[in-house]
Nucleic acid binder design. Structure first.
Length: 419
DNA sequence: TCTGGGGTCCTAGGGCGA
DNA sequence: TCTGTCGCCCTAGGACCC
């Protein structure tokens, strides 16, 4: 049996833990730059605020309903997530942390009763120790555990946050009651395809011929169908796998068109991405740089320029990576255009320990030592204290985060004081 | 005026060597 | 030496997830 544990309205719940007076009040969390709604409390959902809603378009609804607004505080959410995951790991041997607010458990050596008990214990302990409410779905496959979780959450007054699909009757009933677009793995495009052949719910989906599913939804769709039929095709992935690509991309507060500004941004993104690379002890040999216009601007030209280039050697040096990224940027940059977003993606990742030496990386040891010193300084005095010459020294580029809550759990000056 | 960021996997199609 | 075929690798693009 597989269990899926999902924190309810995770970001909203994190904010509520430290501001309990917000309980039962509508609350939304905004994306970087306070752009879109990325999390909502149940009360905010009932007001019809959709996921991804541009905040400026919903200003009136926010004001009218006294919706509490928060800028995203990933330091807080990340720390709370670690606490929740630690508790889960204490109760189960095989855990896959699937995302910041979700984890799968595989109960291979437990009876059904034991698995049920463990799930209930986790719900109880997580809320008690962290204040975060969680829901758990238990089923024979991961995809069905997702469906079960949905039922647990939707009918929490009946389920107390736990639902198990432990027989065929329950499985078929659950599939009849879930619309195809709500199934894990069926996105907007596949939903459209399915509705074209009159597939409306999970039951209709599993009644399709395998051949059709494979042809139209690839092997992933077919695996999903098997999972919903009760045959596991996905196992849990234990341990944290190294990333296969690392990206740092940002939208700008307003459009920019000067090359110098873009060079500064791309350099800074390179420094951030290189640090992520070094954190997982990897290096890269390919870099992609892109710049693009504002896709939402009416009646104006849209463009997206990108270029991927191979480095002559693998590296994790901020200096080498930013130099190369700027080179790529200069090749794609066009004057008199207005850019709203830029980014860098590091690819061709491999462990530093497997470094392939080449004629061109004679400064490798020097660079390695330099990066190590920079990382040490950052660890001691705070992130990104050391900056490259082409980076913004005056900190002009700042993200809009007007409604940021405190770092209650990670900054000693910001912890709650109980008097 | 104001619309996020960071990932993974799969497939099709082209280049290229055996 | 030329040509056809096969399979591998790479890349772009599209789909999905949170």
């Amino acid at each position: 049996m597989f269990a899926l544990i999902d924190c309810n309205n995770f970001y909203a719940s994190c904010e509520r833990v430290f501001q309990p007076h917000l309980k039962n009040k509508p609350l939304v969390i905004l994306s970087n730059n306070d752009g879109c709604v990325i999390a909502r409390s149940n009360e905010a959902k009932s007001l019809g605020i959709p996921m991804g809603a541009p905040a400026f378009k919903y200003k009136e609804i926010f004001q009218k309903n006294n919706v509490q607004i928060f800028s995203s505080n990933f330091t807080l959410y990340g720390d709370m997530s670690n606490r929740v995951m630690t508790i889960i790991a204490k109760h189960a041997p095989d855990v896959e942390v699937y995302s910041i607010d979700e984890a799968f458990i595989k109960f291979s050596e437990f009876s059904e009763d034991e698995a049920n008990e463990k799930c209930k214990k986790i719900i109880e302990t997580v809320i008690k120790w962290t204040g975060i409410p969680v829901s758990i779905g238990l089923a024979p496959t991961k995809s069905l555990a997702k469906v079960a979780n949905r039922i647990a959450k939707k009918n929490s007054y009946k389920t107390n946050g736990f639902y198990s699909i432990n027989n065929d009757r329950k499985r078929l009933e659950a599939l009849r009651n879930i619309s195809s677009g709500d199934i894990w793995g069926i996105g907007l495009q596949n939903e459209k395809k399915l509705s074209g052949v009159n597939v409306k719910n999970g039951m209709d989906f599993i009644n399709l011929p395998d051949k059709w599913v494979k042809k139209n939804m690839s092997i992933i769709g077919l695996k999903l169908k098997k999972e919903l039929e009760g045959t596991p095709t996905l196992d849990i992935e234990e341990g944290k796998a190294d990333k296969k690509s690392i990206a740092t991309t940002r939208s700008f507060e307003s459009e920019i068109s000067s090359l110098d500004d873009l060079i500064e941004r791309v350099t800074t993104f390179s420094v951030v991405a290189s640090k992520k690379l070094r954190r997982q002890n990897s290096e890269c040999n390919m870099i992609c740089v892109f710049i693009r216009s504002n896709p939402f601007k009416q009646n104006s030209e849209r463009y997206h320029f990108s270029l991927t280039g191979s480095l002559p050697f693998s590296t994790s040096s901020s200096i080498e990576i930013s130099k190369f990224a700027v080179k790529l940027l200069k090749k794609i940059y066009l004057k008199n255009k207005f850019y709203k977003k830029a980014g860098i993606i590091l690819m061709g990742l491999s462990p530093q320990s497997n470094h392939q030496f080449s004629l061109f990386d004679k400064d490798l040891e020097k660079q390695k030592k330099l990066m190590k010193s920079i990382d040490n300084i950052d660890n001691k005095y705070g992130l990104y204290k050391v900056r490259l010459g082409s980076q913004d020294q005056k900190r002009i580029w700042k993200m809009k985060r007007q409604k940021l809550s405190r770092n209650y759990t990670t900054e000693i000056d910001e912890v709650l004081i109980v008097r």
